[in-house]
Simulated scan of single mutants.
Amino acid sequence: MKEYEVYGDLKVPVNSRIILRLDGRSFHSLAKNLNLEKPYDEDFAGLMVKVSKDLFNEFAPVFIYTFSDEISILLDNIPFNGRIEKINSVVASFAASSFTYNLNKEIAKPVAFDSRIIPINDKDIPKYFKWRQDEAWRNCINAYGIHILKSKYSDKTANEKIKGLKSSDIHELLFNEGINLNNVDNWKKRGIAIYKQNKEIVGYNKKENKNQVSYRSFLFEDFEIPIFSENFFKDINII
């Protein structure tokens, strides 16, 4: 019956890097269930970082970027012999399990993530993550905008009003309310990155009777990422 499995042998291109993008399913309903703080909830952001770190430790990617309920994972060592169905199903289910485990709170229904695979070359890595970071910025503008509108109007009216507003209009609306988005936390505007960094360790070498410097890698949670560029990814040895 093996031949009845649809696309079971479909694989990613050989010797390629891939980005795996996960998105939370129906997380708007989940946000209501969890009574998350608006426009941003720090505990939820911290939870997404914990999920990202679990993914990092399990699948050994080179870089993870997260904002809102989205996680992008850059892999150069492709698991499961490159089998697309296996990668998508296992990583998405692992993320959902990690989310539930780290949440440690009763929720109305099970959590799920969807998953898609993007084969990518080195030169397009900065473009991809800048594209997602631009989306994080748009989310930030809209999140603050709808938060202000809902403080003045019904949810239905607020949703209708924000649909007709340009980003510049929302900036003006927020500025009139005393909110300058340039001053909000960096992670709300640009997202959060997780990647390996080296830490300098100074130890004493008894044999040579002197201090000796060595380096150990650790998983770094970067809440202060710059606007993504080619130089950023070169500086952290991704490309």
Rank of each mutant, 00 (worst) to 15 (best):
V213P: 12
S168V: 14
N77E: 14
K32W: 05
S89K: 09
I192H: 01
A45P: 00
P39I: 08
L36D: 02
F80V: 00
E70R: 05
A60V: 14
F94Y: 14
N209W: 01
E42G: 07
I170T: 09
G145E: 02
F44P: 10
A96E: 00
N183P: 00
F44V: 01
F80G: 01
I120R: 03
M48E: 01
N139P: 13
N33T: 09
R132D: 02
N182Q: 13
T100Q: 13
P110T: 01
G145F: 00
K130M: 12
R190Y: 09
P61K: 05
S97C: 14
L103D: 02
H147R: 06
N57R: 07
I194P: 00
V12M: 04
G82V: 09
E5V: 12
A193P: 00
I225H: 07
V6T: 13
K188E: 14
K86F: 00
N15I: 04
L22R: 03
S167K: 15
D155F: 06
N211W: 15
K206T: 10
L55C: 00
I18H: 00
K196S: 08
L174P: 03
V12P: 01
G191N: 10
I125A: 09
D9Y: 10
K11S: 07
K11T: 12
V14L: 13
F232M: 13
D54A: 13
A31Q: 08
F99M: 01
Y128C: 06
E58I: 02
D235W: 03
A158L: 07
L10I: 09
N211F: 15
E221C: 06
Y153C: 03
L103V: 04
I201Q: 14
F27D: 11
S151H: 05
Y204I: 00
E42S: 11
I225F: 05
V6M: 12
K152P: 01
S168A: 14
K105L: 11
K156R: 12
I192G: 01
F232W: 12
A31M: 10
N180Q: 04
L30P: 07
L20I: 15
D169N: 14
I227E: 11
L47N: 02
V90E: 11
A31N: 13
V184S: 04
P110G: 04
N57H: 03
I73Q: 06
I18E: 02
K166R: 15
R216P: 00
E221Y: 03
D235N: 15
I120W: 05
I120A: 09
F99P: 02
S217N: 12
D185C: 08
H171L: 15
F67D: 04
I117H: 01
N176C: 02
L219N: 10
I73P: 02
N77M: 14
E224Q: 09
N142P: 03
I236C: 05
V213D: 05
I84E: 10
L30V: 11
L174C: 04
S89D: 03
K189P: 02
L10C: 06
D54C: 07
K188W: 07
I71N: 05
E5N: 10
P226W: 10
D124G: 11
G164P: 06
K38S: 14
V6G: 00
V51G: 03
K109E: 11
Y101I: 06
K109Q: 09
I117L: 10
L34A: 04
M48F: 01
D23M: 08
S97P: 00
N182L: 14
L181I: 05
